[in-house]
């Protein structure tokens, strides 16, 4: 009675060959409510791609972490926007105070470990030796459309892994809302790399 031969979460199974009691659904199975037709909400990509989207990515943005970002520090807004032709520029749902608070909480759980509490890229894992992510407060990321952030959280970027399995879709957008709030809060300051010396 204490230990019944039934499948419970994370319990192993001697019945199935792979030893897992949790079975994988047949490939291509879509659970009810998980069709995810709303492309902008679930991928952060525009439903209708602009003509420029077909053009190959210019050297403005290469999909590799910090080193590639340096030349863009002084890029003009139009250049930056052109680098993300597919990414949506507007949130797929209104960002209310409640969602921002949710975003702050989720940011501090999942993102601050590397990006730091203020998004400077100085989180504890970075201090332990992980590659330093770019600061959210550099011009490239201040001007990057929200869809770009969604794409990075969902699919990873450079050294950053995908957080799709840990952060649900609506929470990802809430986090991006909070990142925008962080960027606004630091907007008056000089870029972090220049002020780190004369902070005091």
């Amino acid at each position: 009675m204490q230990d019944q031969p039934k499948a419970k979460p994370f319990r192993s199974s001697s019945f199935f060959k792979d030893g897992l009691s949790s079975r994988q659904p047949v490939e291509g199975t879509i659970a009810r409510g998980w069709l995810r037709e709303d492309k902008e909400l679930y991928t952060g990509k525009k439903t209708t791609t602009s003509p420029s989207a077909a053009a190959p990515l210019t050297s403005a943005i290469a999909p590799t972490g910090p080193t590639a970002t340096t030349p863009n520090a002084n890029a003009s807004p139009s250049q930056v926007a052109a680098a993300y032709p597919d990414d949506v520029e507007k949130f797929p749902f209104p960002i209310t105070e409640e969602i921002l608070n949710r975003g702050q909480e989720r940011f501090q759980i999942y993102c601050s470990v590397c990006h730091g509490m203020t998004g400077q890229g100085d989180g504890m894992i970075v201090r332990r030796g992980f590659r330093k992510p770019p600061s959210y407060h550099e011009q490239r990321l201040r001007e990057a459309p929200v869809g770009h952030f969604f794409d990075v959280v969902s699919n990873g970027w450079g050294a950053m892994p995908s957080y799709a399995s840990q952060v649900p879709v609506r929470d990802r957008w809430a986090i991006i809302g909070y990142i925008r709030a962080l960027q606004l809060s630091q907007a008056g300051a000089q870029p972090a790399t220049q002020t780190s010396g004369d902070r005091k």
């Binding site: 894992i125 332990r128 030796g129 992980f130 590659r131 892994p161 399995s165 840990q166």
Partner: peptide, 9 residues
């Protein structure tokens, strides 16, 4: 999830 960090640390 372990490898999120431990691929580098």
């Amino acid at each position: 999830v372990c490898m999120n960090c431990h691929k580098q640390i």
